[in-house]
C-alpha cells in the first residue's frame, strides 16, 4: 500500500512538470516579458527604461532558459524559468504586484475559503443524496417525473442568477442577513449562511439528477431483485442494500473534488465579499497579476493530482473487491 502511494506520487511529478512548462510557455514565451510590461504600463507612451525597471522589479530581466553571462550551475539557475517556474515546486511563489508575499496571502485566505466550501460540499451532498433517494423510491411515478423536470429546469439557470436573486430577496428585500462581507470570528456564520444556502440550491438540480441515475442503476441489479423476492420491504431494500452499495460510486466520485475545496469558489466569494482564495484569483485576473495566476494554476493542479490519488485510495477503502498492487 505504501509502495503504491509512493509510486503514485512519483507519477504526479511529470504532470506537475507539464503544468509548469505549459504556464511557462504561456506566460513567458508566447508573450515576452517586454510585451507584458508594455501592456501593464500602458501601450502608448512607454520608454525602454520604464520597461526595464518593470522587469527588474519582478525579476523578469534574466534570460528565459539559459544564462550565458554566468558560469557553472548558475547558468541554469539565474533564469526566469528557474526563478519563476521551478521555484513553485518548493511553494516559493514570490511576490504579487502589490509586493505582498503570495504564500502568506494564500495561507490567510484559505480559512474563509474553506469556511464556505466545506459546508456547501457536505450539506449539498446530503441534500442531493436524500432527494435522489426519495425520487428513486418513487421511481416511474408522477413525483419522480416532476422532480426530474424541476431538476432540469434548475440546471438551466445560470449560477449568477441564484446569487443575484438570493442577495436581492434575502438580504435586500427581507434584510435577514448582510448582503456581503466577512469577519474572522465565530460571528462569520451570519455572512456565510446565505452563500452556503445558495451554493447548495444551485447544485441541487444537477446533483439530484446524477445521484438518481446512480441509484436507479443500482436498483436494476440482480441482488436487489433477490432481496425483494425474499420479501424484504421496499424501504429496507432501499436503505439496507441500495444505499450502501450506491455510496461506493458516489463517494469515489466526490473524493476528487475534496482537495479542490481549498481553492474556494470564484464567483460566490467575489459576489459575497468573502476574502478567500477564489476572490483572490478573480482580483488577480482582473488586475492582470501574472505571478498570482501562475501560483494558483500550480496549486490547483497539485490539488487535482492529490484528488486523483485519493480517489484511487478510496476505492480500496470502500470497496473490498478492489486491491491496489
Amino acid at each position: 500500500m505504501t509502495g503504491y502511494i509512493f509510486r503514485r506520487m512519483l507519477y504526479a511529478i511529470p504532470v506537475l512538470l507539464g503544468v509548469n512548462l505549459l504556464t511557462f510557455v504561456l506566460f513567458f514565451v508566447v508573450n515576452t516579458p517586454d510585451d507584458m510590461a508594455r501592456m501593464q504600463l500602458g501601450a502608448k507612451r512607454v520608454t525602454p527604461e520604464a520597461i526595464q525597471k518593470w522587469k527588474v522589479e519582478r525579476g523578469y530581466d534574466k534570460p528565459l532558459l539559459w544564462n550565458d553571462t554566468q558560469t557553472g550551475i548558475v547558468q541554469a539557475t539565474q533564469t526566469v524559468f528557474f526563478e519563476k517556474s521551478a521555484r513553485l515546486f518548493v511553494f516559493d511563489f514570490g511576490r504579487a504586484d502589490d509586493q505582498r508575499d503570495i504564500a502568506t496571502e494564500m495561507r490567510t485566505r484559505m480559512g474563509p475559503s474553506l469556511a464556505l466550501a466545506i459546508p456547501v460540499f457536505i450539506v449539498g451532498m446530503a441534500v442531493n443524496i436524500t432527494l435522489a433517494l426519495f425520487v428513486a423510491f418513487f421511481r416511474a411515478t408522477r413525483i419522480d417525473f416532476w422532480t426530474v423536470v424541476a431538476c432540469v429546469a434548475m440546471m438551466s439557470i445560470s449560477g449568477l442568477f441564484y446569487i443575484i436573486g438570493g442577495q436581492y430577496l434575502i438580504s435586500k428585500l427581507w434584510s435577514l442577513v448582510p448582503i456581503s462581507g466577512y469577519i474572522d470570528t465565530l460571528d462569520a456564520w451570519r455572512f456565510l449562511i446565505l452563500p452556503v444556502c445558495i451554493g447548495v440550491i444551485s447544485g441541487v438540480g444537477s446533483g439530484t439528477r446524477w445521484y438518481r441515475s446512480i441509484f436507479l442503476e443500482e436498483m436494476s441489479k440482480d441482488y436487489v431483485r433477490t432481496a425483494r423476492a425474499k420479501g424484504i420491504s421496499e424501504v429496507a431494500v432501499m436503505f439496507r442494500h441500495v444505499l450502501g452499495n450506491a455510496l461506493i460510486p458516489i463517494l469515489t466520485g466526490a473524493v476528487v473534488v475534496i482537495p479542490l475545496l481549498f481553492m474556494g469558489s470564484l464567483v460566490s466569494e467575489s459576489f459575497f465579499g468573502i476574502p478567500g482564495l477564489g476572490s483572490y484569483t478573480i482580483d488577480a485576473i482582473q488586475s492582470q497579476d501574472f505571478a498570482v495566476v501562475r501560483a494558483m494554476v500550480f496549486i490547483g493542479s497539485l490539488l487535482y493530482v492529490m484528488g486523483l490519488l485519493l480517489t484511487d485510495l478510496s476505492y480500496t477503502w470502500v470497496d473490498p473487491r478492489v486491491r491496489l498492487e
Binding site: L22, I285, F290, V297
Partner: peptide
C-alpha cells in the same frame, strides 16, 4: 495534465 489545471484558471491564463 490539461485536466489538472482548474478550467477557469487555464482559460484565464490563456485569455490574459
Amino acid at each position: 495534465t490539461l485536466n489538472s489545471i482548474p478550467g477557469v484558471l487555464l482559460i484565464a491564463a490563456t485569455v490574459l
